[in-house]
Each structure stands twice: as structure tokens, then as C-alpha cells.
Write a protein that binds this DNA or RNA. Structure first.
Length: 850
RNA sequence: GCCGAAGUGGUGGAAUUGGUAGACACGACGGACUCAAAAUCCGUUGCUGGAUAACGGCGUGCGGGUUCGAUUCCCGCCUUCGGCACCA
């Protein structure tokens, strides 16, 4: 029978579904394994990035099933988000309708891939039965003091009357209408993630299953630094400016001050002065700059003198106050004491604006103002620093802070780069923030019996402007639960990262209707043993999930500190982007031949970047599945590259995976009778040894490779095994058939997690009862994976000059003797002095000669 | 720009702890089978000198270094990708 994936894939998918094969329940008697892939945003269709992610997860899940573990492998939908809203406005369809359609299409696509999900646990975050718990927890967090409101600066389009995401800003203009983007100050809700900063930094012990690169990224993101906050009195105004500095040892060298343009003090500084108008214009010009650009160290420093001075608390000298583009309101206090001699940015700024430089740290040799070409940021002894002169700068940090503390001018402070999490979104398609704003009582939580606060129905159309919820009076107008007076319901919704911060807990009891999740279920299933998802989520999603888990712990919902034991960060599947000057981003199929399929304009080929619906550089797996079947698609993407490496998509080579699967199929088909025949006992000869060797080596290699995520080399090992088995098939006799049968039986099982449909079919044809998905993973014998006779390399001065076959573990002296007898080695050592003889057991010999 | 990665034949990649660079595939070329094609099977395939040999030289982004020995460790660069807080 020919290998026909179209028939067998449908057949086995149906059998698995009918038998509810992947449905799991808590079973205390069994060891559990929770395997989770990051759930997708239902953008429309799945693409190769999803296929890669879910294929990896499926191999691991199916492997663990076969290892006898009770495997939880759920799937669901990160269903709230901006694209649904954009599509709604564009096509006059409700986001819920669009999302539902996408979910149903994508679910069908996932099913076609034969993934081992327990679909009974499916969740969609836009379901009120999901987000109601988020609202409940939100109120509890507020009651615990973990939430507050604050103003922040956001991208704003006056024309669309809406906040813009950074990705909606194109060269300073609104992507939809082209109107110039402004910065607007808006009120928002904040979660106090900074309160957990130290615990989030504590990776030791609990996150040993995470790659250090992710931990490093998170650690840098949190950016803990030790320093001091120092208060500077403003001249002629009864106010002061507080700065954070990591270099209190240089405070005597502070000669001016720079403040962020967003700093609230700015208006006070400028008020009723001759600088007011020009200063405000300067602030406006900076706020228009690209945020990423403003962080650019190389970017030209720009400043504006406010006409005001602050007093240096240690020297008593006046310091002019500037507004500067490179000072960020988000970090520290939004104001910095500028020490131009010892900070490079301040140095450049001072050079441009003619500010005074003062050396206060001297390294060994004499530093002079005239010879300085850049700031000196290294260590040294204090000079020009009053009673601290002569001290080494490190101990001086503490001494100066202590002194300032005594005078009530400053104190030792720890600062984090991490900012509190702003969760307010001026959007429709998200979970409503369960609060009511009352003129008399302030922010009042929606009473528990009124939860969930559901989204009202809204008619979407292309002419829509602003936040939809704000325009629904029956939603917005309400009464204050506290005083009964007229009040406004909060019309912002929550950041969608809120939903993805706890969905893994909901999966443990997705239908629980009395709490976010059943604690006993969570206690059994958590933690997630293996989490798999794109490296793009290394910081935000993974940090928020860690934070949220700790909050839930502190609210008594869970007993765990961390949600994810082992983390596999998958490399991005990338593809070049295509853009039509007329129609914007194009799908690859719309850009064929370099011409836009809509208008025949020349297509601009953009850079290679991660596949995403917004850039349209996506490749749908449908064609591949139709042509070769899901098994080949899965096998191919796993074989193409190791999971953690990024992959530029190309389907060239998919033929090879299909060919391999056909070879497996034919090899087993040709020998299918071995499974029903009475076979003679194996003979003890070289061929038998060979079969045993290859079988055991392959089982070991594939097992090890799955454990260390190297799925591409696991596939290569199986290919090698098949090549070897074909060679053996040619020369084997009756006495080898029993071992050969064992070999192809192992092959069938090894390949089952990768190409489960083909494996099930072969298993059935071989006459086995039940399913290979539920059979046992093969074992191997370490002794049989080693050869007695091995080949080692012989080098002279590190260059390969020959090889010798020796018995394993031959004595060193005997190896040297054999190596020295090689003709080519004699040629390269003749007449030379032997300096050294190196032997790496069972690997190589190196003769060092002169 | 900052933080984190990656760079190896024509292509995807392998080399698990510093020990024979290029496993396994794709592609290409040559051949077998076939009336022919598809499928399948066999062989060659890093570059280069040499004779298609023996035997050499070069070669893992670039430039240095450590070492008997470096794709692997160190220093300095280049390019590409991910993240940079309202895309998810």
C-alpha cells in the first residue's frame, strides 16, 4: 500500500477525537506533565511560526505521553486585541464576530496538524466567563494597594481622536489618516510591578530550567541600581527638584541640571518668565521625537536653558537648569544632576551649551580640564570635594550619602529601570476595567454581584473615531455603588497582557464557575513543566506572567511562586516583507513577480522579519499540508533548524522530508510480515551486532535529543537509521529477522511523536492492538551503543596526518606505537624532535615536533 | 542607540565538555531502470594545487590573542534578527 497521507491523517484524527485520547484528568497516582505552547492571537490564519511552535510542543507532549506521564496539553485563544478592532472599523464587522470566525478557522487548521490537545479545555479570553475573574482579581489587587491611577504621556491622533500604539505611528504620523501624532497626557491605571522587582530578580533555584539569556534580559530590564536621591532647592521658587544618581561621589562636580521635557516642574520653572513661550515650543518639539530615537546615545544632545537655577546642596553654588532631550521621565525622577567631567552625555551637553566643568575624581595621573576629550567615568580619588578630598570614590559614595542624609538633603536609594505596568487601553476589544468614577467618592469598584462588566454591543464602521465605549451612554452612565449618585463607568479596557498572565492557570480547571480556577486542580497541575514560545516574549509576557502569579499567590489563589519550570524560547520564523506604494503591506502571494497583484506597481522588498499578520509576511501551511500531509509539514519544520534558532522560511527541501517518510513507510511495509511470522532465534554474528548497535544508538540519540530540544538532530538520527536499515535489509538472512523486526518496531515508535498519523497506521498494519500514541517509548542498552573497534585521528602539530583503527580503551603506549607506524606520520616527523605526545582517549593522538 | 542572540559549502544545518569541520538533508552533476516520463535506486559534490591518483595548501562573518590543538575561550569590529513598555 502506497503512503497516502490525505486518507490516513483524517482517519487517525477522527479516531483520536472519538476516543478523547488527549483528554486528561487529575490523577494523583500518576506523575503529571504540563506542556504548554503560547496560545495564539486569532489573527485569521495560522502561519509557519505557529506550526513550528506547536510541532515542538506536540513532539514533547507525545513523547511524555509515551513515557507514561499524565500529560496536560491545552490550547486556547488570546482573543482580545487591537487587530480585531482595526478589522471591525475597516469592514464594519463586530470584533466578536471577526474573532469567532478566526478562531473557528484556525482551530480547524490546528486539528489538521494532528496536535495532541485536550480541546475540552479550550478557552478564549474574550469570553465573559474568562475575564470576569480578571475583573474580580483586579478589584482585589486594588483593595490590597497594588493598583493606582496616574497620568502618562501617550501617542495621540487628534483626527482619529484616539491613542495610537507605537506600531500605529509611522514616521511621526497616524497610520490611518496621516495626521501628525501628538503627545497627550492621559490618566491610566497602574499595577505595582515594581513592588515585586526584587522577587522577580531572584531567579536562583526556581528558574534553573530557563536559558540564561532570558534571565539576563529580564534582569537588565528590571535594571536594579544602587545610588542616592538628592534634593536641589530651586532659586526664587519655593520648591525643589529631586534627582536620582548612581554617582553621589561626584555631587561636588555637578554644575548644572537637566530635566525631562515631560517633567511636571517644567511649567512651574517657565511660568511668567521671558523663557516661557520658547521653552514650551522646545518641549513640544522634543515630545514629537520618536521615543526609540530619544534613547539614542549617539543622537545630538539638545537643551533649553529655563532661566532658572538650583543650588548645589554641597557646594552652595548655582546650577543652571536645562530642559534636555536625553533625559527620560520614565527613569529615576526625570531629572539629573549633570556632572560633565564624569558623565559622557553631560560632557557632550556641556561642550555644546558652554557649561562649566569641574573635575572631582582624579585617577592616578593628573586629569586636566584643558586636555579632556571625553568624560572620565572611572575610579579615582576625590578632589575639589571639601572634607571628602583624598577619599577613594567608592567609599566616598557612602560617606557623602550619609552626610547628605544627616543634613536631610538626600538619602541612599535603590532605583529600578522597570516601571509600573500601565494597563489602561483606550480600546473597545478588551476586558472592561471594573471601576466607576464618582465625583464625590472617587474611583469605586464595581460590586462583586455586578461582575462581569460585559462589553456593550457597538456598531462598527469606517467612520468611527475615538474610544467606542465612551460613546455608549447606557454603558458609561451609571450610579455610584457607594453614594447612589450619578457616576461614570470606566470606559478604558485592560491591556491584553493581563489575560495572558494567568491563562495557564485557567486551563487547569477551565469551566470553574466559582473562582478563576480550582485551587486543588492548580495545585496538582502547576507548574507548567515545559513552556514553549517565541523569544519575542522573553521580557514582557514572561515577566508579567511571573508577576501576576506572585500576586495570585499573595491573594491566596495559588501556592506557587513561579509559573514555568522549563522554558524553551523558539527562534522567530522570518520572511521578507513586501510593500506596495499604493496598497501598503502585501501578502507574499500578492507580490509574486515583483508586482502588486492589485495595481501592478513595483513591490518594495523590505527587510526579513518575524512573520506577523500586521506586516502580512506570513506563509500559511495549508498548501504544504495539502500537497504532502501534516506529518511531512511537521517533520520538515522540525528538521529545518534547531528550535531556538531563528529560521528564514523557505519550503525548499520539504521534498526530502516527504521522501524520508516514504522510505520509512516502504521499509516497514516491505517487512510487515515479520510482525506476524514465527521468527528463528537471532544468530550471533556481525550483522546482528550491527542491527543492535544501530538500534540502540538511535534510540539513545533520539531520546537524548528530545530531552535537550534538539529535534532537528533527532530527525537526522532517524534518517541515518533508516539508511542503515536499508543497507542491512540487502544482506540479512533468516537469523537476523527477529532483530530487524525489533529495529523497525523501534523506528515506528521513535517517529511517532513527529509523524503520529503515519506511525499509527503502520502500527495498525503490523497487527498491534490499540494506539502507538499510547504505547511505551523504547529503551536502549548503553553497552550496545559502544563499538569495540574505533577509529581515532592522528595529528602532527595539530594537523590531521592519518587515522588508525584500535580496540576501545587501548593503552596509551600501544596507541602511540601504532600511530607512529603510519607512513604519512613518519614522513612528517622524520628528522624532527618529538616535543610532546598527546593522547585523548578513544579520540585522537597529537605529536608535537620541532 | 541600549539589552539579548545569530553568522559554518550553492542552500538548511551537524560537531553535546577545547580534540578528525561539513553528520543529516536540499540543490546540482553523472549513471541504472523505463519506449518515454514520474517514482525509485547507485555514485560524485567546501575551495584550490596535483593527473579525476598519492599527497598538499586554504577554509566556520572580519582583525588580533591564548593553546599541542579554537566553529567552541578572550579582546576589538562588521552584518542580520528579537525586544525597547498601547502589536501580540
Amino acid at each position: 500500500m502506497k503512503y497516502n497521507p490525505a486518507d490516513i491523517e483524517v482517519k487517525w484524527q477522527k479516531i483520536w477525537e472519538d476516543k478523547k485520547l488527549f483528554k486528561v484528568d487529575k490523577d494523583e497516582s500518576k506523575e503529571k506533565f504540563y506542556c504548554l505552547e503560547m496560545f495564539p492571537y486569532p489573527s485569521g490564519k495560522i502561519h509557519m511560526g505557529h506550526v513550528r511552535n506547536y510541532a515542538i510542543g506536540d513532539v514533547i507532549s507525545r513523547y511524555k505521553f509515551m513515557k507514561g506521564l499524565n500529560v496536560l496539553h491545552p490550547m486556547g485563544w488570546d482573543a482580545f486585541g487591537l487587530p480585531a478592532e482595526n478589522a471591525a472599523i475597516e469592514n464594519s464587522t463586530h470584533p466578536a464576530v471577526w474573532t469567532k470566525q478566526n478562531i473557528s478557522y484556525m482551530k480547524q487548521q490546528l486539528k489538521k496538524l494532528g496536535l495532541s490537545y485536550d480541546w475540552d479545555r479550550e478557552i478564549a479570553t474574550c469570553d465573559p466567563e474568562y475575564y470576569r475573574w480578571e475583573q474580580k482579581v483586579f478589584i482585589e489587587m486594588w483593595e490590597k494597594g497594588l493598583i493606582y491611577k496616574k497620568k502618562s504621556h501617550l501617542n495621540w491622533c487628534d483626527d482619529c481622536n484616539t491613542v495610537l500604539a507605537n506600531e500605529q505611528v509611522e514616521e511621526g504620523a497616524c497610520w490611518r489618516c496621516g495626521h501628525e501624532v501628538q503627545i497627550k497626557e492621559l490618566d491610566g491605571w497602574y499595577l505595582k510591578i515594581t513592588q515585586y522587582a526584587d522577587e522577580l530578580l531572584d531567579f536562583t533555584e526556581k528558574l534553573t530550567g530557563w536559558h540564561t539569556k532570558v534571565l539576563t534580559m529580564q534582569s537588565n530590564w528590571i535594571g536594579k541600581s544602587y545610588g542616592a536621591s538628592i534634593s536641589f532647592k530651586i532659586k526664587d521658587i519655593d520648591d525643589s527638584i529631586e534627582v536620582f544618581t548612581t554617582r553621589p561621589d561626584t555631587v561636588f562636580g555637578a554644575t548644572f541640571m537637566s530635566v525631562a521635557p515631560e517633567h511636571p516642574i517644567v511649567s512651574k520653572l517657565l511660568e511668567n518668565t521671558e523663557f516661557q513661550k520658547e521653552g514650551q515650543a522646545f518641549v513640544d518639539s522634543i515630545l514629537k521625537e520618536d521615543k526609540v530615537n530619544r534613547m539614542d546615545d549617539e543622537k545630538e544632545k539638545r537643551g533649553f536653558f529655563t532661566g532658572r537655577y538650583v543650588v548645589n546642596p554641597v557646594t552652595g553654588e548655582d546650577m543652571p537648569v536645562y530642559i534636555a532631550n536625553f533625559v527620560l521621565m520614565d527613569y529615576g525622577t526625570g531629572a539629573v544632576m549633570a556632572v560633565p567631567a564624569h558623565d559622557q552625555r553631560d560632557f557632550e551637553f556641556a561642550a555644546k551649551y558652554g557649561c562649566e566643568l569641574k573635575i572631582v575624581i582624579q585617577p592616578g595621573e593628573e586629569l586636566t580640564l584643558d586636555s579632556m576629550e571625553e568624560a572620565y567615568t572611572g575610579a579615582g580619588k576625590l578632589v575639589n570635594s571639601g572634607q571628602f578630598n583624598g577619599m577613594d570614590n567608592e567609599p566616598a559614595k557612602k560617606a557623602i550619602v550619609d552626610w547628605l542624609d544627616e543634613k536631610k538633603l538626600g538619602k541612599s536609594t535603590i532605583n529600578y529601570r522597570l516601571r509600573d505596568w500601565q494597563i489602561s487601553r483606550q480600546r473597545y476589544w478588551g476586558a472592561p476595567i471594573p471601576f466607576i468614577s464618582c465625583a464625590k467618592c472617587g474611583s469605586v469598584p464595581v460590586p462583586a454581584d455586578q461582575l462581569p462588566v460585559e462589553l456593550p454591543d457597538v456598531d462598527f464602521n469606517p467612520n468611527m473615531r475615538g474610544n467606542p465605549l465612551d460613546k455608549v451612554p447606557e454603558f458609561k452612565n451609571t450610579v455610584c455603588p457607594k453614594c447612589g449618585g450619578a457616576a461614570n463607568r470606566e470606559t478604558d479596557t485592560m491591556d491584553t497582557f493581563m489575560e495572558s498572565s494567568w491563562y495557564f492557570l485557567r486551563y487547569t480547571s477551565p469551566k470553574c464557575d466559582t473562582a478563576p480556577f480550582d485551587k486543588s486542580e492548580a495545585d496538582y497541575w502547576m507548574n507548567v513543566d515545559q513552556y514553549i514560545g517565541g523569544i519575542e516574549h522573553a521580557i514582557l509576557h514572561l515577566l508579567y506572567s511571573r508577576f501576576y502569579t506572585k500576586v495570585l499567590r499573595d491573594l491566596g489563589y495559588v501556592s506557587i511562586d513561579e509559573p514555568f519550570n522549563r522554558l524553551l524560547t523558539q527562534g522567530m520564523v522570518c520572511k521578507e516583507t513586501y510593500k506596495c506604494p499604493e496598497h501598503g503591506w502585501l501578502f507574499p502571494e500578492e507580490a509574486e513577480g515583483g508586482k502588486c497583484s492589485k495595481c501592478s506597481s513595483d513591490v518594495v522588498i523590505g527587510r526579513v522579519e518575524k512573520m506577523s499578520k500586521s506586516k502580512r509576511n506570513v506563509v500559511d501551511p495549508n498548501k504544504l499540508i495539502k500537497e504532502y500531509g501534516a506529518d511531512t509539514a511537521r517533520l520538515f519544520i522540525l528538521f529545518a533548524s534547531p528550535p531556538e534558532r531563528e529560521l528564514e522560511w523557505s519550503d525548499s527541501g520539504v521534498e526530502g522530508s516527504f521522501r524520508f517518510l516514504n522510505r520509512v513507510w516502504r521499509l516497514i511495509q516491505n517487512n510487515i510480515n515479520l510482525f506476524s511470522e514465527e521468527l528463528p532465534a537471532p544468530v550471533d554474528d556481525e550483522i546482528s551486532k550491527e542491527i543492535l548497535f544501530h538500534t540502540n544508538v538511535t534510540v539513545k540519540k533520539v531520546t537524548d535529543d528530545i530531552e535537550r530540544y534538539q529535534l532537528n538532530t533527532a530527525v537526522a538520527a532517524m534518517m541515518e537509521f533508516v539508511n542503515n536499515l536499508y543497507a542491512i535489509e540487502q544482506k540479512m538472512g533468516e537469523g537476523h529477522k527477529a532483530l530487524f523486526k525489533d529495529a523497525i518496531f523501534s523506528l515506528m515508535k521513535l517517529i511517532a511523536p513527529f509523524t503520529p498519523h503515519a506511525a499509527e497506521e503502520l502500527y495498525e498494519m503490523a497487527g498491534f492492538e490499540g494506539l502507538i500514541s499510547r504505547s511505551e517509548w523504547p529503551d536502549f542498552d548503553e553497552k550496545l551503543t559502544q563499538k569495540d573497534e574505533i577509529t581515532i585521528a592522528v595529528q602532527v602539530n595539530g594537523k590531521l596526518r592519518g587515522q588508525i583503527d584500535i580496540p576501545r580503551n587501548l593503552e596509551k603506549e600501544a596507541v602511540f606505537e601504532a600511530a607512529l607506524a603510519i607512513e604519512n606520520v613518519i614522513k612528517h616527523t622524520e628528522g624532527m624532535n618529538m616535543v610532546k605526545q598527546i593522547y585523548v582517549p578513544n579520540k585522537l593522538v597529537n605529536f608535537v615536533v620541532k
